[in-house]
């Protein structure tokens, strides 16, 4: 279901979690709810869950000094955009072989993956799933920067 109503564009759904791998499943549960609201098929819902998980794994395992991670879901008529950001303040950790698995899976299951920085200089991973029957433009205000 695409967002409708008189209140203008739908507000993002924002989830902030302590940097704890045992809590990633909460982000998956939220992703499931958002995917259902967006009218995604079961396959695309599973794709979204995987992409969100991999983005969080990448955030928690390859960045140092992470205390929390935030996942924001923005839904428009055309696309579902997920932005994953953490508060890492130090240098990167050791990515290891599995980091390449995370990135490859993430890129394979969503339409676009971008890396960017927010206004506070934190790195942002942006996942875009185009909704069926649309031109696939992300919500207004979302800039799909280069990875």
């Amino acid at each position: 279901m695409a967002p409708t109503g008189d209140a203008g564009p739908e507000q993002p759904i924002v989830l902030r979690l302590p940097a704890d791998e045992s809590l990633i499943h909460i982000a998956r549960l939220t992703a499931s709810g958002v995917a259902a609201r967006a009218g995604l098929t079961i396959d695309r819902l599973e794709d979204l869950k995987l992409a969100v998980s991999e983005a969080l794994i990448d955030r928690l395992e390859t960045r140092a000094g992470v205390r929390w991670v935030q996942v924001a879901f923005s839904l428009s008529d055309a696309a579902l955009v997920v932005e994953v950001v953490g508060d890492e303040s130090e240098g990167g950790g050791d990515p290891g072989d599995e980091s390449s698995y995370a990135l490859a899976l993430m890129e394979s299951v969503v339409d676009e993956v971008h890396g960017d920085h927010d206004e506070e200089g934190r790195s942002v991973t942006r996942l875009i799933i185009r909704l069926p029957g649309t031109g696939g433009q992300p919500p207004a205000g979302v800039d799909a920067g280069a990875r």
Binding site: R28, K49, L50, S53, E54, I57, D97, E98, Y101, A102
Partner: peptide
């Protein structure tokens, strides 16, 4: 019911 990159590792 769910498999991620860490499981593959």
């Amino acid at each position: 019911t769910f498999l991620d990159s860490k499981a593959v590792g």
